[in-house]
Design a binder for these strands. Sequence first.
DNA 1: AACAACTGCTCAAACGTTAGAGCAGAAACG
DNA 2: CGTTTCTGCTCTAACGTTTGAGCAGTTGTT
Lengths: 336, 336
Amino acid sequence: MATLGDVAARAGVSISAVSRVLSDAPDSRVSAATRERIVEAARELNYRPNFAGRALKSARTQVVGLVVPDITNALFTELMHGAEDEATERGYTVLLGRSDDVRPGGEVIARLIGEGRVDGMALQVGDAVQPAGLRDLLTTQAPIVLVNSSNPGHVGSVTLDDHQGALIATRHLLELGHQRIAFANGLPRSFTAKRRRTGYKLALAAAGVRVPKAYETRIGYTVDNGRTALHRLMALDPRPTGIVVANVNAAVGLLGEARKAGIRVPDDLSVVTVHDSWTAENTWPPLTAVKMQFYTVGRTAVRSVIRRIETGETSDEVITDPPPELVVRESTAPPR
Amino acid sequence: MATLGDVAARAGVSISAVSRVLSDAPDSRVSAATRERIVEAARELNYRPNFAGRALKSARTQVVGLVVPDITNALFTELMHGAEDEATERGYTVLLGRSDDVRPGGEVIARLIGEGRVDGMALQVGDAVQPAGLRDLLTTQAPIVLVNSSNPGHVGSVTLDDHQGALIATRHLLELGHQRIAFANGLPRSFTAKRRRTGYKLALAAAGVRVPKAYETRIGYTVDNGRTALHRLMALDPRPTGIVVANVNAAVGLLGEARKAGIRVPDDLSVVTVHDSWTAENTWPPLTAVKMQFYTVGRTAVRSVIRRIETGETSDEVITDPPPELVVRESTAPPR
DNA sequence: AACAACTGCTCAAACGTTAGAGCAGAAACG
DNA sequence: CGTTTCTGCTCTAACGTTTGAGCAGTTGTT
């Protein structure tokens, strides 16, 4: 690996001159001829600035951490794409972390920030993480932006318009003529679940539709949670004719289980999910979904982290543009 | 952020003493009392070694890069999990890179290695990447291990037992009584496609079954490729009664398209896929699959990279333990 | 008693980079 | 012509860490 010193020797100038030219400092004051020699030498030696040297000197790594609960999840991969694109455009790199069950977030984050591996972080906590464990993390002055959740003593966040998403999904079923509309929701303490809940309720209220309390389950967002929800809801009397599922993974599970139970979708039961992903297209029947803009969340979160790093500004943003978008496929139909 | 100097000042000793104690150097020669003071001071100040300082001095980052073509792919996320687990156990961190269509691998890798951001890399190239573009990368002495492919002037690789996987899948259909067994394969130049192909052919040959040449398509591994394959194969006369799909994503697409075309699986057509993932469980019908051990590939790749970094040894490994494993679900049945 | 060997530390240099200060020589100005 | 200003560089310190060398003081050996 060639260093600045190697380039300097080859071009017959000092290290500082090379540094100034190659990092194009604003007031480099170097003659065109010398500049030319330096650039040429650097090219010949295939010089690349050493990351550690630069980071040590400047106390900046140009890296932002992205910590998500589960990289397997199709939704988070969309988010990651957005984060990567934004970071790349701004000359940053994304370092991906996991905050799964084993290491509930805290340690990873403290390490990444504490060791100076990243300048800041975008952090999506899993639903299983107690906010209490985060309190001390977030009160440090580190540039951390919360994704899809927020915190009382807020530190900056980027969230989706969950309310609107659930509302659109519910309204879709209402417009098809459904009245007995159930809601397979996430865990009660989940930030997004709370917001989707209000959307669902508001849509029903606006239409003057009342449903039994048991029409809402609050089990969780996983495939298995969806399976469980199907059984609970279908055991009710009267049965719902339509279900709004708060998460696409749960919807996939719910749909599979309906199939197994001999419940025909959409003939016997309409299913609409909040979230869209390629997995929703490939179920049978393909899932009607409300596309939430996870890609944009990723972009916005990284932009927000970088702004925080570079200017110190914090903000709480809700992605409303582009808005949640209903994608009608084949899992919904008028009730019979 | 507390530095060694801060800890030293608080404990009333020199920086070197602190460094030796905290990085527990083998021959630190520090009294128990001093050691105690140092550890205590470090704890109080919440000291964490600065990444850049350490990396600069030691010319080691303890980071391995993992570059995969597409982080959205459920298979690669499994691989990533394995890579992460292995890295964590050995005190390394994984830096995830993308080698998608836009930036065909070369630049990313050259940067990560050239700037000293990583000590080595595990690299899975997409099927669309020409091996020629990699030649110069791999001839550098950098510790790069190829994943699911290998290279003539080999630099170290970790691959799955693709041959065996395809063989098991094909044999499953044979054992159910199928004779007209088609194969929806990846692109001709794909390393894995070539190997899966031999497995398929060998299984047929061993059973004394001959099929038309057109029974193999070589379109690719994506969902859409799978859809196309379904149409091509079903246009043949006689129609195949069973299809081995070389990739789970393609299988998902193929299955969906069959559905759309009114072809009943497994009544009219059996489908078995090489690869298993959670997406295969949640199709309808659930896909019979040969589970390939992607998790193990990830682990092994990282272990191999680290070995290369630390001892210089290179190796070409094929994962045979655990072996590919047939998971029978509901997309296969005897022919009618 | 003289010296070696060990113990328990400290000093200082180095990794590659950036950036303020400095310094010759040339050009501009009075 | 003497002074100032500008140009085009170089010198040097610093970021936080590791590590070989060094150095008092103590213990052990002859």
